[in-house]
Amino acid sequence: MNHPKNLMYTSEHEWVEIDGKIATIGITDFAQSELGDIIFLEFPNIDESFSDGDIFGTIEAVKTVSDMYMPLTGKVIEVNEDLNDTPEQVNEDPYKNGWMVKIELEDGANQSKLLDAKSYIELIG
């Protein structure tokens, strides 16, 4: 199982890569492995705003439907449209081609709940 050190994580099994005011969000290798084959993703609209903890989308795997929770407060600026045709990229490459949304962080967005790789690996045991 791969959980890169340069990313931050949430207890909802998402990863976050923060670059200035922009955060890229996806689900972790652990999450994709638990879900199994991912076959459909439902994304938010561009410019839609979310507070941290809000449900912003849905992941459908063969056997399950799961909500995705926004890890940080901000506004959606881009979604990974490629996943509409190739949702399996989330299984195959969760940290690169399998990214899901990019948000523009609200000023002072609270990052204190994010976990580093070491804490996340401890969390999933």
Binding site: G36, D37, I39, V62, K63
Partner: peptide, 20 residues
């Protein structure tokens, strides 16, 4: 295999992946 409870037994849900 991913082993899951089914009808009182721990059964293999999948090995490589369900679609595969």
């Amino acid at each position: 295999a991913k082993l899951v409870p089914f009808a009182g037994f721990l059964m293999p849900l999948q090995y490589s992946g369900i679609i595969d």
